[in-house]
Design a protein around this nucleic acid. Structure first.
Lengths: 341, 341
DNA sequence: TTGTAGGCGTTATCAT
DNA sequence: ATGATAACGCCTACAA
């Protein structure tokens, strides 16, 4: 292993020459303790000394070694993020939001994948053990029991996307979102409505979906009895495509459709557009995925990036006595995919 | 707080009790050095000793403190990843690929955003200074000069998406990809072709785009002189939408179109589908974005996740004497968006 | 094969 | 306000 050797002796061209705090102390004519204090903006350092130290550090091109600092202080200044998949629009928005806040706070962001239903297992062994001050759990990463166990093992955690009573959570009011969608369609005069429900094999009992459906039906019920035909399908564009075709093939197709996610809605839109002689069907989605803009899809906007920001802020703040349950505002974005009957 | 209270009662919700290597040494009746060696699978440890140590560690629920290990060894066992945007399909695929490999190798993944044209600046100060053994640069993160500076400052780096001669890079043969697209259209008998070129404001001179265009024109030239009308536009779905409308409004619209990215192609498809009385226009994209499947878009497949995997592997492997320039295989995926004249 | 002891670079606790 | 000097927990020559 000659790798770690180049750290102290580099025979090659130009030297990285990482100085240590001792070098700075010598250069500034003070003790290492003072350097440490000065560089960390402690109040009990005279202005002149601080200046001298800062200048010396700059001159020597010095930067503190984070590992040494972490070891000595026990503070990792790092936040971990765990999600079942990293490539979904949702997850990457959360990551981006988290990263924004952490960067500004001078914290590091450690990323990991984990299968659903993570337990504290993931924070030990191969996980984030002693490497993070807190962890952000995106999506359906663990059940109540898993969250409770995390707390028990002393792991600071925040959930994004669903409610876990043991830890601070950030989610949207899915029920209300569903209601907004339904209310919009009802308001446009639709009286025959289709519902496309996406089901994830790995997690058939998604609370998000149930809540959205519930809110949606509430809206329909609130304004008389609007018949509704439900098509469960795969949680994918393909699924939405198939479901929409199914609806269009009905003897009496609905005049409007609510899909529980934008992805499903995209598939539905495509199926609809593909039929030359299709009836006019309004479509509403849920998410406000970037593609929704281009598709002209009316949808329920979910402030995902902001949720990521908030999650990071929660983790950076002092731990609240009790877990806080945040519910973010949802809003309907009306585009061209919906119109009155 | 009674500290030395519980040592074996693990089931009853006992707090972490973070032991140190010394505790394990005592428990196993060996020295800390032996524990360190045994736990890291060193060959020069007798089987019986290793067993005893492993068992003791397990009994004490011990896990080494990574910061201490990092400080002592100078090895961070962490890889950093820097990208201009985290939310693009491309970036998140790379991240996912990198994460796969690093997880398996027991390495950590540190994530950061950076504006284009990063210099070594980003690896100092607020960046990854002394926290990573290497860095993956996604997309147009730095120019040749920046890469050279990185090398000079001793930062191990690998670029994904473009060629930087100073460091190991992983990219696709964009020229060939463009050729595949053009050849496909020509082969289908198209003789009047449109080209939609996306331009990113932050980086107008994208080499990827130029290469794709170049390869594309080569294919057209190779088979006689096929006229081509080029429409530069924003690198976005909206841009593709507008560009396609422009082409369709021409007195003699082309019978086929190549868009330099899938995103552009999606917009083009939408514009096309939106016109009830549009002529049949074949469309080819570039990327093989997941939405392309649903859209039925013929496109040039880019193995992005695999590129991420390779980048991680390169960083984990011993540093090559000379930077290696990897060029990944591209392939045309034919779907329903293209057909013969 | 195993043990001893010094060191990694900071931070934190006392003094002063 | 500043300076000694232990921790921090592990790794790694060097010895045995």
């Amino acid at each position: 292993m000659t790798k770690s050797q180049s750290r102290r002796s580099n025979e090659s061209g130009v030297p990285p020459e990482r100085g240590t705090i001792a070098d700075v102390a010598r250069e500034a004519g003070v003790s290492t303790a003072t350097v440490s204090r000065a560089l960390r903006q402690f109040p009990n350092v005279s202005g002149s000394t601080r200046d001298r130290v800062v200048r010396a550090a700059h001159r020597l091109n010095y930067l503190p070694n984070p590992n040494a600092a972490r070891l000595a202080s026990g503070d990792t200044r790092t936040i971990g993020l765990l999600a079942p998949v990293l490539t979904s629009w949702y997850t990457s928005e959360v990551v981006a939001g988290v990263e924004e806040v952490l960067t500004e706070a001078g914290r590091d962001l450690l990323i990991g994948t984990a299968n659903p239903l993570a337990s504290s297992q993931h924070f030990r062994g191969l996980g984030f053990h002693q490497r993070t001050d807190g962890v952000i759990l995106v999506d359906a990463l663990c059940e109540e029991e898993g969250a409770a166990e995390l707390v028990r093992s002393g792991v600071r955690a925040v959930a994004v996307g669903e409610h876990l009573s043991a830890i601070t959570s950030i989610k949207v009011d899915n029920r209300h979102g569903g209601f907004l969608a339904g209310d919009h369609l009802v308001g446009l005069g639709h009286t025959s409505i289709g519902l496309i429900v996406g089901i994830l094999e790995a997690r058939p009992e998604s609370p998000q979906t149930s809540e959205r459906v519930y809110g949606f039906t509430e809206a329909l019920r609130a304004s008389g009895h609007v018949p509704m035909v439900t098509v469960p399908t795969d949680l994918s564009m393909q699924g939405g495509f198939g479901a929409m075709n199914h609806l269009l093939d009905l003897p009496a197709p609905p005049s409007a459709v609510f899909a529980t996610t934008d992805e499903l809605a995209f598939g539905a839109c495509l199926a609809l557009r593909q039929r030359a002689s299709a009836p006019a069907v309004s479509i509403v989605g849920f998410d406000d995925h970037p593609v929704a803009v281009a598709m002209g899809l009316t949808t329920v906007h979910q402030p995902v990036r902001e949720m990521g920001r908030l999650a990071a802020r929660e983790l950076l703040a002092d731990e609240p006595a009790e877990p806080v349950q945040h519910e973010m505002e949802l809003s309907l974005v009306v585009r061209s995919s919906t119109s009155s009957v």
